[in-house]
């Protein structure tokens, strides 16, 4: 989990730096404070990535255990939060192979080739014109969550990091150790996939 960034990158000082320096200087008793700061965010990330609460809990626990193991390798070359998500994303990909809840087959994104997704419409649909707050309900949230879980992990990670966790393209690329261009391509494909699922939902409901 050591960072692999260009040499001579200036050290980043953020709200976690002093706490991490203290833990790495021998104050392991402060580790629960790090857990307190990120437990909620990581659990939500886990629920967004995993199809069930048990896998999300495993992801959070395994991520914090990995942080405990590798925190001494943290070089302050990125925000701690971004490094934490890199550990979490890596843990997530390894864990999924072991999960008894993981579906044997995920949907292919081949149908998301632009030619297939760019079906002509002769008007802007109603669900786009309505106020956002009028659309939101539990059924829609579940439809969206189910659609996200149907994405292959590589695409799901990108859309969760970019559109749900709020990371920039550059940050997501560093977390996933892929290029910015790759993040953009995967994000566009993932959004098209989700859009098709939402269209299906709204075509039947509105």
């Amino acid at each position: 989990m050591a960072e692999s960034h260009p040499p001579n990158r200036p050290a980043i000082h953020d709200s976690d730096t002093e706490l991490i320096q203290a833990i790495n200087s021998g104050r392991e008793d402060l580790f629960p404070e790090l857990v307190r700061r990120y437990e909620q965010r990581l659990y939500t990330f886990g629920r967004r990535m995993c199809g069930n609460p048990a896998d999300a809990e495993d992801l959070v626990q395994e991520t914090f255990l990995n942080v405990l193991r590798y925190l001494k390798d943290f070089r302050y070359e990125t925000k701690f939060k971004n490094w934490l998500y890199r550990v979490a994303a890596s843990t997530c990909l390894k864990q999924r192979r072991k999960s008894k809840f993981a579906p044997e087959r995920q949907e292919s994104l081949e149908t998301l080739e632009p030619e297939a997704a760019a079906v002509a419409a002769d008007s802007v649909p109603k669900w786009v014109q309505m106020p956002l707050e009028k659309l939101l309900n539990e059924e829609l949230a579940q439809t969206l969550q189910h659609a996200i879980h149907s994405l292959p992990e590589a695409y799901r990670l990108v859309v969760v990091l970019r559109d749900m966790e709020g990371f920039s393209t550059e940050e997501a690329a560093r977390i996933l150790t892929i290029s910015d261009a790759n993040v953009k391509v995967r994000l566009h494909r993932a959004r098209l996939f989700l859009r098709e699922k939402l269209k299906g939902y709204f075509d039947h409901g509105l």
Binding site: F31, P32, V35, E39, Q40, R41, Y43, T44, R47, R48, P53, A56, E57, V60, Q61, F64, L65, L68, V124, P125, W127, V128, L132, L135, L136, L140, A141, L144, I148, V159, D163, M164, R191, L192, L194, R195, L198, K199
Partner: peptide, 29 residues
């Protein structure tokens, strides 16, 4: 439709951490 899809993704709320899990996590760590 793509813009609305992104907007809907961004409305997602946090999932509260179950207290029982939080206790188990601290014990494990």
């Amino acid at each position: 439709t793509l813009r609305r899809t992104v907007a809907l993704c961004r409305t997602g709320a946090d999932h509260p951490v179950p207290e029982e899990f939080s206790r188990r996590l601290r014990s494990a760590l």
